[in-house]
């Protein structure tokens, strides 16, 4: 047998004793044997499969606690979030954020773009907070003063027309038969239903009363109601009475008088007696207070 083959057999642990003696005196073989012996010093550390298996199972149990629960937790968390998000989105998507003021109440509202809106008594303002980015629309029923944040644009929608904001401070009245926009700062574009938009600048106002549009000028820097006062200029008397009822918890019976008469004047929001005198005396009318009922007569 060739020596190489003997070496191979030796290496494969299948060398017979007889063949081994044939290699005994070979110099290379003794070197190999020496190497082989030296290699024993570098043996892998002892390993006990049974105890190692126990350690593995222990690891797996810990792993199970951490791993198996985690995906489930994440999945359920995601599911819960989805459901919640879906609900919130669906509930909110078409739900408007609405602010209303009751009688004698005033409210300051901040819009999503940080614009401030001050609501006069008996006013409802609503907008879609969720879709603010897409549709910056504010709908108004009543009267409100808008102080628009710089660089911000939105539209105030009313049933009589709309006001396109061009960065400004303005007051909008939208009450039965009256649509009035007063600009105190900057400019706004007012579009009365079915008509081309008109731009008004600071100190100007646009009024639509009984389908008749007119422009007017104002010297004041903010609407009177902000200062607890209601000021009227050539306004039908029933509107004055309506405004009065918004600032005082009263029921006015004015069936005995002509409510279409035009009135110019003001009343305070602080005291009912003073207010009533202010709106009745110039027209030589009389009033009688009976609890929350007020009767106005000639």
């Amino acid at each position: 047998m060739k020596k190489e083959n003997l070496f191979l057999r030796w290496l494969d642990h299948s060398l017979s004793e007889a063949d081994r003696t044939a290699l005994q005196d070979d110099e290379r073989f003794s070197a190999y044997e020496k190497i082989s012996q030296a290699a024993q010093y570098f043996r892998a550390p002892e390993f006990d499969a049974s105890s190692s298996y126990d350690r593995l199972r222990l690891k797996q149990q810990e792993e199970t606690k951490v791993r198996r629960l985690k995906p489930w937790r994440i999945a359920s968390a995601i599911a819960a979030l989805l459901v919640l998000g879906f609900l919130v989105f669906n509930l909110n998507a078409d739900e408007l954020t609405t602010y209303s003021t009751a009688t004698a109440e005033s409210l300051e509202v901040t819009l999503p773009d940080d614009s401030a809106v001050q609501l006069n008594a008996g006013t409802t303002l609503s907008f879609n907070e969720e879709k603010w980015q897409d549709a910056r629309d504010v709908s108004l029923d009543g009267e409100a003063l808008f102080k628009v944040a710089k660089g911000s644009t939105f539209t105030v929608e009313t049933d009589a027309g709309s006001v396109q904001v061009l960065g400004t401070e303005f007051n909008v009245i939208n009450r039965e038969g009256l649509f009035e926009v007063t600009c105190y700062e900057g400019r706004v574009a007012v579009a009365i239903n079915g008509k081309e938009a008109v731009e008004i600048t600071a100190g100007q106002g646009l009024r639509l009363l009984n389908s008749k549009a007119s422009r007017f000028e104002t010297a004041v820097s903010n609407p009177s109601w902000v200062n607890d006062k209601s000021v009227f200029k050539s306004t039908p008397y029933h509107m004055i009475l309506a405004e009065l009822q918004r600032h005082y918890t009263i029921q006015i019976d004015a069936s005995a008088i002509d409510k279409s008469v035009i009135f110019t004047g003001s009343f305070t929001h602080q005291d009912l007696e003073t207010a009533l005198r202010a709106v009745t005396e110039p027209l030589q009318l009389k009033y009688k207070i009976d609890g929350d009922r007020v009767t106005i007569t000639k």
Partner: peptide, 18 residues
């Protein structure tokens, strides 16, 4: 599974060490 461990773990262990 355990039988597989008993059969191969040691060889795998030595393999890894070397």
């Amino acid at each position: 599974y355990e039988r597989l461990y008993q059969q191969h773990a040691r060889d795998l262990h030595d393999f890894c060490y070397y």
